[in-house]
């Protein structure tokens, strides 16, 4: 834990110099991210209206992957987790993992995600 040492305590600018906290991205990145988010959303809604796709096995996984991608993009770029201190990453991903595992466990327990022996 480099950021714990006494030397780091003295000046804040050291952290920036060490590259732990990268500069936030620029306006153009933000606009590009917005375009990508819009495209993914359009894609989600579009596949919702393809009856043959909705009936298939890939519908739910595709939607989950698309929304996970959107989730990750917002968190990484707009919430700056890609650039900020790794501590923030830990503070967010730890609880997020526990939350997701809890959701999945509950769905199992209530029989929505049954394990099929056959």
């Amino acid at each position: 834990m480099a950021h714990d040492s006494a030397a780091d305590h003295v000046t804040h600018s050291d952290h920036v110099a060490m590259g732990e906290v990268k500069e936030h991205p620029t306006w153009s990145t933000y606009w590009k991210v917005a375009v990508i988010l819009t495209l993914i959303t359009a894609c989600e809604v579009w596949i919702y209206y393809i009856p043959s796709f909705v009936a298939g096995h890939l519908f739910v996984p595709t939607l989950l992957i698309l929304s996970a991608a959107k989730f990750a993009i917002v968190v990484m770029f707009y919430m700056h987790l890609r650039y900020d201190h790794k501590l923030f990453r830990a503070l967010f991903t730890g609880p997020l993992i526990i939350a997701m595992v809890t959701i999945v466990a509950l769905l199992f327990l209530f029989g929505h995600l049954a394990i099929h022996a056959t």
Partner: peptide, 8 residues
Amino acid sequence: HTPTTTGL
């Protein structure tokens, strides 16, 4: 910018 342990 006052120093904190982590600089945050």
